[in-house]
Nucleic acid binder design. Structure first.
Lengths: 358, 358
DNA sequence: CTGAAAGCGCTTACAG
DNA sequence: CTGAAAGCGCTTACAG
């Protein structure tokens, strides 16, 4: 591959001049510029990024960090949408995106990741961080690497973007209560697993208590975000508390699992049981019935985080951002059915299709 | 940040020695090694990757290339699963993954991407390439950058991994024909859009013709992979050809759209209409009814591609790989219903839930 | 406006 | 087994 020196020789100027022309420094004649650009074209010169990085101290690489915690991030549809949002602005600015997925345990992220952060390879870092037990940005903070986190695990002085999870929780509970439900089951995840979900819960709690409900006495089961765990939680809750008329699930996948399980147990959704999700993943709208849920605008939060990072890189001091959340009313919620008696034996086995009209 | 030189001073040895100890070159005393490692620890030394890349000519960065063609890759669930497969082996080998999503037009990929490929920043490249009109690996080929493509748009001498799309097509058609269907509609994408899909079609054709069917006369509509386009195609096909009893869709999202549309038009799936998908995306199993489809083992193909790349990097000459595909029988296919008469008016509006048992 | 020269932080033959 | 020194390909004050 041709180097800067090859270009300078061919153009009959110094390497300094070539470098300046290429980096758009002002102050050189049009003639010089022309000669240089011609040599570049003739030689097919492309700058060596490693050399440039070493000399200039800038790599044009942004790390996007999605820690592996309890499950592979690659099975979470939300991830891809956030990533897409981040990618669009990084690409548009001419930067490159290094996708890093450190394994995160209570003792911190893995060694390879830590080395990467400290290696000088990165101009900036965007991390999802909602796990209270361990941080993926400690080294970045120590090194002073420009960083923005998407989530809640932050400290004073960190830059962050987050979705308004509290409001999402409020909106869900307001909707369910407004429909007339009082026997409400909760499908959540264990405490200390995810701070975003804890804020959703606080939103639920605020509205419930404002309505005089004892939130802590509501039946509750913990899943792990997966569809399967949602089904298991629903089975547990509906057998232990057959009086339940509404199930609030903290993500869409658990909601979809819960609906399938409820159907197996002879409950029609939404007639005999209302169910809500959270996230509005692509499958939510094509699910049958389409899921009532919260759209947290994942791509926008990715974009906001990336823009914030570039602001920092340019020396600005951006404002922290809380992104609004949007309630999506679809077909899995309805008023409680006064005629439904859970003890009534149902002999319908799983039949997902309608019977032909009589 | 401390440099190699700081370490060498502290340890009382040369930088050459430190470098060798760190890179596990043999031939130095245990004592030297101990001194060096201690200095490294005390100083918290982390090698500068840009300097290492420049000096050694190896960056430990692998680019993963998912071209944008007709739609954002970030809305395709398959993408994430392939990416997950690739990531697992790249991480395990201690490499970093640069995710690049060039915009691809008939005149080739965008300039920024081309610069990246030629910049010396990359040790290797893994690209999805199924679009016949333009290649994302031309520059990599010219430069001699180790590359493996997932897909069909390859030339003699390229390394590739692909899923057995032909067999997938065969298996689908065998299943549909075996059920007794002869009035079959096809939901595909336009020609020259995707070579993998063309191989699926050839598989369908082979089996159809072996059964004496005139494949080219089968009703066919073109979508664009999206759920919405699947619905539109189904609407088109079922109105123009109400005699259709089975719809073969070339991906799951179009199949899900088709099923929703069919229901709107008063067809029960699978009783009045069989529908098949392709890909077995996560939503396929939780769809109602669960989708009969083909599992193309996306994560495995990602892994196979990454392993192949490391083989090349180590100087081996790996074999091209065709990955087997797996038929997934679920609940959207059944024998044709002799009693169904499409002309019969149906007054059922969209009702995704069962009626209560009489 | 242009160039000579030092320097970014490593690795790698080559000597010893 | 260890070290001196050149070199990877750029950028950046500093002079002129």
């Amino acid at each position: 591959m041709p180097t800067l020196q090859d270009v300078s020789r061919r153009a009959g100027v110094s390497t300094a001049t070539v470098s300046k022309v290429l980096s758009n420094t002002p102050y050189f004649t049009e003639e010089t510029r022309r000669k240089v650009m011609e040599a570049v074209r003739e030689l097919g010169y492309v700058p060596n990024l490693a050399a440039r990085a070493l000399a200039a101290g800038k790599t044009h690489i942004i790390a996007v960090v999605f820690p592996y915690v309890y499950e592979p991030i690659f099975s979470d549809p939300l991830t891809l949408r956030i990533l897409g949002g981040i990618e669009s602005v990084i690409t548009q600015r001419g930067y490159n995106m290094l996708l890093s997925t450190p394994r995160l345990s209570p003792s911190g992220p893995d060694e390879h990741y830590r080395q990467l952060v400290l290696s000088g390879y990165l101009d900036g870092l965007i991390a999802i961080d909602n796990v209270p037990e361990a941080s993926v940005i400690e080294d970045a903070r120590a090194k002073g690497l420009p960083t923005v986190v998407i989530g809640y695990d932050v400290r004073e002085g960190d830059y962050w973007v987050r979705s308004d999870d509290f409001s999402g929780g409020e909106q869900i509970m307001t909707h369910i209560l407004g429909l007339g439900h009082r026997q409400i089951g909760l499908i959540t995840v264990p405490e200390n697993m995810n701070m975003a979900l804890e804020h959703r819960i606080e939103g639920l709690r605020a509205v419930a208590e404002a309505h005089g409900l004892d939130f802590d006495s509501l039946p509750r089961a913990n899943g792990d975000f997966s569809t399967e765990s949602g089904a298991a939680c629903a089975a547990d809750l509906l057998t232990r508390h057959p009086e339940i008329t509404a199930l609030i699930c903290l993500n869409d996948r658990m909601a979809m699992g819960a609906i399938q399980q409820a159907r197996l147990m002879g409950r029609r959704v939404p007639q005999d049981l209302s169910v809500t999700g959270y996230d509005d993943i692509p499958a939510a709208s094509s699910f049958a019935p389409p899921l009532t849920t919260i759209d947290q605008r994942a791509p926008e939060s990715g974009q906001a985080a990336a823009r914030m990072l570039f602001d920092i890189l340019e020396g600005a001091t951006p404002e922290q951002t809380v992104l609004p959340v949007h309630f999506v009313l679809r077909e899995t919620t309805a008023p409680p059915n006064p005629d439904f008696h859970p003890s009534m034996p149902t002999n319908r086995t799983e039949s997902r299709e309608e019977e032909p009209p009589a």
